[in-house]
């Protein structure tokens, strides 16, 4: 699936992110091909989630450049120069990117169906009927067709996360960001959600950028795994190689600790 000669779907060029004196991302450079499934692993606080938040435009880069499908995300062209993006530019690129959050972030003031149809109607301009059809197809896909009119608070965590996945897919994103999507779930619900995501990854050409502590999942679905430590990528390899034969001592330690824990 991954082919380095394709123009990249996401390109990070020496991206730096600082919060005050704290450098959470220190010169991140990476290309992700269309349809590629890239997983970011590493100890907490190593900058993985920050990358997702930068791509989702929830944070602004301190330095460096992010491109989506060849056009700048963090910046925009003005007068022949690249300048930091304004809100209007961000709003333009943002529609191509979707995100599934650790805490689901479903809207409690809307039913399950409305959670999924609201953005397609308000943002993409679909008619309510079109959005409705799209939403019901997606609810079928995530196995919650009978929950359309429920309130999110009446669903289990696993069901809420499935709705959140359907909600993100309803926008037909080119890039889907998965931010520790099973961390808030009860253990018995994790497998179902991960299975669903694996199925979606297999059957669509969406580019996935995933932060997870589920190493089995990372190994099964990823095309590439990046190991982070202290804001830097210390290892970048296909999963079968990285998990069986890590070259870096830190990667080895991390994998041992994670496996030992679970």
């Amino acid at each position: 699936m991954s082919n380095q000669s394709d123009p990249p779907m996401i390109r990070f060029d020496n991206v730096v992110k600082r919060f005050g004196d704290n450098t959470v991302l220190d010169g991140f450079t990476c290309r992700m091909a269309p349809g590629e499934f890239v997983t970011l692993i590493g100890p907490s606080g190593s900058g993985k989630t920050t990358i997702l938040r930068l791509v989702m435009t929830l944070e602004r880069v301190t330095d460096g450049l992010i491109e989506i499908d060849g056009s700048p995300l963090s910046h925009m062209h003005r007068g022949g120069k690249l300048v930091p993006a304004d809100e209007k530019h961000l709003a333009g690129v943002r529609t191509r990117i979707g995100m599934v959050f650790q805490q689901f972030n479903l809207f409690p003031n809307m039913t399950v169906l409305r959670n999924i149809t609201e953005a397609p109607v308000r943002v993409l301009g679909l008619t309510p009927a079109e959005a409705d059809e799209r939403a019901r197809d997606l609810l079928d896909l995530v196995g919650l067709a009978d929950k359309a009119d429920e309130h999110p608070s009446r669903l289990s965590g696993g069901q809420q996360q499935r709705v959140a996945i359907a909600r993100a897919l309803a926008m037909r994103p080119d890039v889907l960001l998965l931010d520790e999507v099973t961390s808030a779930l009860d253990p018995e619900l994790v497998a179902g959600v991960l299975g669903l995501l694996g199925h979606i990854a297999d059957t669509t050409d969406i580019t996935f950028l995933c932060v997870t502590h589920e190493m089995g999942f990372a190994r099964d679905v990823s095309d590439r795994v990046l190991m982070f430590d202290h804001g830097r990528v210390i290892e970048d390899a296909p999963p079968e190689r990285l998990f069986t034969d890590p070259r870096e001592e830190r990667t080895r330690e991390f994998l041992q600790a994670v496996v030992g824990r679970t």
């Binding site: 989702m56 435009t57 929830l58 809100e87 709003a91 943002r94 529609t95 990117i97 979707g98 995100m99 959050f101 805490q103 972030n105 479903l106 809207f107 003031n109 609201e118 953005a119 308000r122 943002v123 909600r167 993100a168 926008m171």
Partner: peptide, 21 residues
């Protein structure tokens, strides 16, 4: 804040975020 971010990830405009979410 996570509600606002959820709305932002769906590309709602600031006005829509306020009014709808």
């Amino acid at each position: 804040r996570s509600q606002v971010e959820g709305a932002l990830a769906l590309s709602f405009t600031p006005a829509q975020r306020m009014r709808r979410v």
